[in-house]
């Protein structure tokens, strides 16, 4: 009986997840989401940050994140003081992070 479960359960889970529309992880999207998370933790006003879209389109959808990969990584790894001083808290989409 348990032998049947060993085979059936993983197959069932895999089928359900595939049917459920798992779209796959995009590295650039993840880096952007982490940058946004870091900005939300650092900045006193989260209004401008909530406007950032990190969505990366799949298949025929060609949408790209508002923050490039380099900018996302820079903001993600910057200190809160540096983010505030650079103006990233007020205009994260246009701030150049170096």
């Amino acid at each position: 009986m348990w032998k049947r479960f060993v085979i059936t359960i993983p197959a069932a889970v895999l089928s359900l997840t595939l049917l459920g529309g798992a779209e796959g992880i995009d590295k650039g999207e993840l880096e952007c989401e982490e940058a946004v998370k870091h900005l939300l933790d650092c900045c006193p006003n989260d209004g401008p940050i909530k406007m950032i879209s990190c969505y990366e389109g799949r298949f025929c959808d060609h949408a790209s994140p508002d923050l490039s990969g380099a900018t996302s990584r820079c903001m993600r790894d910057a200190s809160c003081d540096d983010l505030y001083a650079s103006g990233a808290c007020d205009a994260p989409k246009t701030t150049v992070c170096q």
């Binding site: 459920g20 529309g21 798992a22 952007c32 989401e33 946004v36 998370k37 406007m51 879209s53 990190c54």
Partner: peptide, 27 residues
Amino acid sequence: GLTFGVLVYQRASSRSDFDPNVWGVTA
């Protein structure tokens, strides 16, 4: 052990309101 499943993370950006999770199948 063999594993089959999913990795899910929660968005922080604007899309989190209506599409909060990003999914990927794992093996």
